[in-house]
Amino acid sequence: MGEIGNILLIIVSVVFVNNFVLAKFLGLCPFVGVTQKTESALGMGMAVTFVMAMTGAVTWLVYNYILLPGSSNIIGMIFPSIRESGLVGVLKTASYILVIATLVQIVELALRKLSPALYESLGIYLPLITTNCAVLGVALLNTTDSPERLSFLHATVQGFGAGLGFMVAMLLMSGIRERLALANVPTCLQGLPIAFICTGLMALAFFGFSGMI
């Protein structure tokens, strides 16, 4: 299979088979919080997609040139002992959080200047992407070495695909919840409980994709 085939495989895998929300249950907070309306779900999905793709790219660089042991380690040039042990165990999560927070801030600043309308409509949810565990999940899963070490392109594509998967899940959920608003839901299940039941049913449906790849 050629390079394009590989990239398509990664995207299909991460959007449907290993959907971050519905298969790994990451990022449930914005998934439940911002799916009241389709427009806000779409805006949030796009912002998260951008942040995830950028995170995939930048954390790959951090992982390969700062954290991993070996000759490519920049820190190892100053401290030879780090060249052997690396900083993976110590700094992985902390440095990734730093990357994500910076990227979200940049997105926020850029959006405020370039598209004030979108900035207004996303409101509080834009800085909240920082605390979205799905983004950290993308970074961490991108930089595990099993089953194989990803290339820079594949890591970026996987981040982008994870964002797409997140957006798909958000749009499906917002469609369901707009219908639920009109449905006759028992009082004890109104609001969040019925949303979680729907999430579970959607996850079951997405389970049908497993084994496809």
Partner: peptide, 10 residues
Amino acid sequence: SIIIGTFITM
């Protein structure tokens, strides 16, 4: 050197 390296890296 790991500790110092960590501080410097971050």
